[in-house]
């Protein structure tokens, strides 16, 4: 399991570096939009007693922690994929980063765009289920389409890519958002750019670090 420890070390470094970059972008771009959107929310009496981080360093600290840990998790997926396929270097890393961006951001966002607080969407569990199904189908579909040699596997892969969007994401009968539409659109554009930059940077860094270690 020496290899596993090396993968963890690579992922820690790549994940933290990639997420640090993302956190800086977020801090100046998307987080102000989240705070602005919350001004349109009416405080719900139901959740008033729940603990939540105080605005400022505490709230930003938790976001940083969330970013760092999820960056580590995403980096583990990339480094393990490269490890299995004996790949090294930032070019392979960029390829895996692009795949991660498609699986974990682009495909789910096609049906469920990044949302600001105060958006009235369909029931949470059905959206989470569709999100997970879409990410899994896109991952397996991309694998079949790009890495499989047999024609029938490529066709199955392409069908899996399309399937979640043919089924369609869950949406409420009457959709309404409290924040202005322009704010919501701005948020979608910025999160897309930021997450794209993050995934490519994460892949490139992880790929470069893979060169630094020798596996058993």
């Amino acid at each position: 399991m020496a290899d596993f420890r090396k993968l963890v070390a690579i992922s820690l470094m790549a994940g933290l570096l990639g997420r640090l970059l993302l956190s800086v972008l977020q801090h100046y771009q998307t987080l102000p939009l989240i705070l602005a959107a919350e001004q349109f929310e009416t405080p719900s009496t139901e959740h008033v007693h729940d603990w939540q981080p105080i605005d400022g360093w505490q709230r930003n600290g938790f976001t940083l922690l969330f970013n760092g840990l999820t960056g580590f998790g995403f980096a583990l997926l990339i480094s393990a994929s490269m490890y299995w396929r004996d790949q090294r270097g930032y070019l392979y890393g960029l390829g895996w980063g692009l795949a991660g961006f498609l699986v974990f951001f682009v495909a789910p966002s096609l049906g469920l765009p990044p949302e600001l607080p105060g958006s009235d969407r369909a029931e949470l569990h059905s959206r989470q289920a569709w999100w997970l199904f879409t990410a899994a189908a896109t991952a397996i579909g991309l694998f079949g389409l790009i890495l499989a040699k047999q024609r029938w596997l490529q066709i199955v892969g392409a069908s899996l890519l399309a399937l979640p969007h043919l089924i369609g994401a869950p949406h409420p009968e009457v959709a309404q958002t409290l924040a202005p539409e322009a704010l919501q659109q701005h948020f979608v554009v910025l999160t897309s750019i930021n997450n794209g930059i993050f995934w490519l940077a994460l892949g490139a860094i992880a790929g470069r670090l893979m060169r630094k270690v020798t596996f058993a």
Binding site: Q26, T30, L31, I34, D50, W51, Q52, P53, R59, F62, T63, L65, F66, N67, T70, F104, F105, P108, S109, L112, P113, P114, E115, L116, P117, R121, L124, R127, Q128, W131, T191, N194, N195
Partner: peptide
């Protein structure tokens, strides 16, 4: 609540 802003920014429901 702790993960709130991160989840929104990563497009998690």
């Amino acid at each position: 609540n702790a993960a709130h802003d991160g989840r929104h920014s990563a497009a998690f429901p």
